[in-house]
Every structure is written in C-alpha cells, then in structure tokens.
C-alpha cells in the first residue's frame, strides 16, 4: 500500500491546494481571535454554534476535504490513470485504503491544526475544551473523507455535488431541521465534542457519546466498503 499512499500524496499536494487549504484553515483561528479580543464578545454557546459548528465543522473542514478527498480517485478517473491501479493484483480494498489515508494525511494537518488553534484561542488554553474540539473535528474529518472519496468514484461532478451537500445539507438543513442531526456529520462532530467536554454545546440535544462513536465508525466503514465495491464493479475508463 506504500506506493499508492505516496502516489496519492504526490497527486494531492499541489502548490495551489496547499495555499487554499492554508487560507481556509486559518479563517476560524483569525475569526476566533478577533471575537475573543473584541469589546463585545459573544456568549459561549453563540460562539460555538457560529464558529465551531457552522464555520469549522460545517464549512471549512468539509470544504478542504471535498477539495482533497473527492479528487483522490476523481483525478485518476479524469486522467484515465485508474486502470494503472485496478490492473494490478491488489485486492480492491488495498487500493481504496491508501487513497483514503492519503487524503487524510494531506487535509488532516490543516484541519486538525485549525481545530487545535481555534480551541486554544477561544477557550483560553482549556485543555479539555481543546481536546474536545480537536477530537470532534478529527472524527468529522474521517467521516467526511470516507464519504467524499466514495463520491469521487461514483460521479465526475464530485466537487459540485459535494459543495451542494455542504451548503444544503450540512449548512442549511442540519441547522434548522431537528431530525437531520441523526444524518449530519457536523452534528455528530459537535455531539462528540459535547460527549468529551459536557460544557461544549451544552444548550443542545445530542446523540449519546457511545452512539456517536459507533455511528462515526460505521460511516467510515460503510463508505470504505462502498468505495471498494464500486472499484470492483465500475467500468474503469
């Protein structure tokens, strides 16, 4: 799996991608710093909904991941290089796994760095709070990655479909339709933060920590299996 992991890192680390990821990842940190030091600091629950949930977990993280994970296979399909990989004796899961890990390895440092720095700034170095935010975002990162990698295999418009999903589903519906929280990665990420540090998102109703963890693992496994299955059954260009 090493050669495919390295190949994926090479494919996903273009200069412009790094610049865009850096800019996006720094936005929540800068915004948090401005809010915290401003003369009219918001209440904690307001801040968490606006910055941690909507901005970081619901926008910045999925935007970075969709730009990286959906092209992990998407570029191979567009460039017709996927056959190089599928015409090998590797079991299909050994092609999917390094692609997912490669996407995680590229986007992870930016997103986790952003989560850690945002938590550090916003919660005044409260280690539990920072850990909760970083863990919640980290688990969301894995769920988003598995979903967008699969999306890159099933449609050539993965980035467009992914953006629609981020804006409509995670951004709009999950914020306003109560039942959506059971089907929203953002809401599972915040539930995880609450489970680790009950002070976080204290005013909301959350899925239990154990259930959240199970669902997170389940989502990753389901999309990993779907990607593997797709690679077995698709017509490779």
């Amino acid at each position: 799996m090493g050669p495919l992991f390295r190949l994926t890192l090479n494919q996903l680390t273009g200069r412009w991608r790094i610049v865009i990821m850096t800019v996006l990842a720094s936005l929540p940190v800068l915004f948090s710093a401005l809010v915290v030091r401003g003369s009219r600091a918001p209440f904690v629950d307001e801040f968490e909904v606006i910055v941690i949930s909507t901005m970081l977990a619901g926008s910045i993280a999925p935007l970075i991941i969709v730009a990286i994970a959906s092209v992990a296979f998407g570029n191979e399909v567009d460039d017709r290089t996927l056959a190089n990989l599928t015409l090998s004796p590797l079991p299909r899961w050994q092609i999917v796994l390094p692609k997912m890990l490669g996407a995680l390895a590229v986007s992870g440092p930016f997103i986790l760095g952003s989560a850690l720095a945002t938590g550090f700034v916003a919660y005044n170095r409260d280690a539990t709070a920072v850990l909760a935010v970083a863990t919640g975002i980290g688990v969301g990162l894995m769920m988003y990655t598995s979903f967008f990698v699969w999306l890159g295999l099933v449609t050539k418009q993965a980035i467009g479909v992914g953006l629609l999903y981020i804006v409509l589903w995670e951004g709009f519906f999950s914020g306003y339709v109560e039942g959506i929280r059971y089907f929203s990665i953002r809401r599972y990420a915040t539930a995880l933060m609450h489970g680790i540090d009950p002070r976080r998102f204290a005013g909301e109703v959350h899925v239990e920590l154990a259930a959240t963890s199970l669902v997170a693992v389940g989502v990753c496994i389901v999309f990993f299996v779907l990607s593997t299955r797709r690679l077995r059954t698709m017509d490779v260009p």
């Binding site: 017709r80 290089t81 056959a83 090998s88 004796p89 590797l90």
Partner: peptide, 23 residues
C-alpha cells in the same frame, strides 16, 4: 472481471497515455 489475482499474469497497455507526468 473482478479477479485481481489474474493480473499477476497479464500486462495491459491502454490506448490512452495513462502516465503520471510528475513522476
């Protein structure tokens, strides 16, 4: 179809220039 083990015995070169130009 869906028989990866077979590709140990097969070499395929498609008509498209399927290379990684950065390599």
């Amino acid at each position: 179809r869906d028989n990866p083990a077979l590709y140990r015995r097969v070499g395929v070169m498609s008509e498209h220039e399927t290379v990684y130009t950065f390599m």
